[in-house]
Amino acid sequence: MLGAMMGDGAVLAAVAKMNRDRRDAEQEQPQAQPNVRTSQDPKRRLQYPCIVGTYSQIKSICSAAQCEGQAHHIIPDFTKRYGNREDGVAGRKRIPGMPTFNDGASICLNGMAAEEQSEHAEAHGADALIEGLGSGKSYYPAGTAPILLIAAEATNQLLMMKAGDIECIAKIRAAVAAELLPVNSNLLGRTTPDALPPIGSPQYDALSRGMTATRH
């Protein structure tokens, strides 16, 4: 039913093409991408240390790191589970082969996720882009996409936000690379931030079984 699996090379090529297309679009029309919120005050991004590590390593120090915010999973945790956040924290309904909630690469960001114009809210601008990957036009089933493509969208959002902070960019890239090293880059991740896959649906079946990506 799922057809032939994509090779790692195909996914890497897709990521490279996505990044090239994005750079070309930015050069032609330098403005914020649709569905991506950008900060009204970019200077504040450099007013506190760039703290990156696993969620368990940094969650208790972000609020005390002069960023007045929270730890944020660089690759959103919802993409690594088919249950709700409570399930994910407890280790239930996580996609086989994905990191745990506490092991996910994370960064301290200013503000709360629901706080308008905060840096944390801006990072969640990637959620809509991730959701677009699971439209069902390219990968089966709808509501899923290769974790490598999901990671690219989420990481690029943060790299854009931290543009000019070379040290922080290096930390982000290193943390994401370390998280993905043991993970099959073709492994399907969830792309629906606000909706859980219904039990018995193709999305639920693919995620709960740890299936890999196939193209239509």
Rank of each mutant, 00 (worst) to 15 (best):
I130Q: 04
D205L: 13
A174T: 07
A105M: 03
I169G: 11
S201E: 04
H216W: 13
A195H: 14
G132Q: 13
L196A: 05
V36G: 00
M160G: 09
S201H: 01
Q66I: 07
A178L: 09
L158D: 06
T214Y: 05
C108E: 01
A177T: 09
F78T: 02
M6S: 15
E26S: 12
C108K: 00
A206Q: 02
N186L: 15
I51S: 02
R173S: 14
I58F: 00
C168F: 08
K80S: 06
Q66L: 12
C168P: 04
I95S: 00
C67R: 03
R81G: 10
C62E: 00
T144Q: 09
R20N: 06
G53H: 01
Y48F: 10
L149Y: 08
A178N: 09
L159E: 09
L148S: 07
E68Q: 14
Q66G: 07
I107L: 02
S135F: 13
G200F: 03
K137P: 13
A174Y: 05
A14P: 05
M18F: 11
G91V: 07
A16P: 05
A71I: 00
V11N: 01
Q157Y: 06
T155C: 08
I199P: 06
K59F: 08
Q203T: 12
G143Y: 06
I172G: 01
N102M: 09
R20T: 08
I107C: 02
S135W: 11
L188V: 02
K43S: 15
A25E: 06
N84M: 08
L187I: 04
S185I: 15
L148A: 15
A13C: 08
C168T: 07
A206E: 01
T54A: 01
I95V: 04
Q31H: 14
P197T: 06
C108R: 01
L129C: 08
R22T: 03
I199N: 07
E116S: 12
A145L: 10
Q29C: 13
I169L: 13
D103K: 03
A145F: 09
G111P: 03
P182M: 08
S118Y: 02
T212M: 13
A32W: 04
A174M: 07
E122Q: 10
I169R: 13
H120L: 04
I61A: 05
P96W: 05
D194V: 11
E116I: 11
A142Y: 13
K162V: 11
R45A: 06
A170Y: 10
L133F: 15
G136E: 12
H124P: 00
D77S: 10
E179I: 02
R85W: 04
A142W: 14
A13Y: 06
A195I: 13
P197K: 04
V15K: 01
C62Q: 00
E26L: 15
E167W: 12
Q66A: 14
S185M: 15
R37L: 09
I51W: 02
Q31W: 13
P202I: 00
I172S: 00
T79M: 03
G104N: 07
Y140E: 14
H72F: 04
S56R: 12
A152F: 10
K80T: 07
E68K: 14
L196E: 05
R209M: 12
I75V: 14
A178T: 11
G132H: 13
A174K: 10
A177S: 12
S201R: 01
A121C: 11
E115F: 07
H120M: 05
I58T: 01
D87M: 01
K17P: 02
G3K: 07
S56W: 04
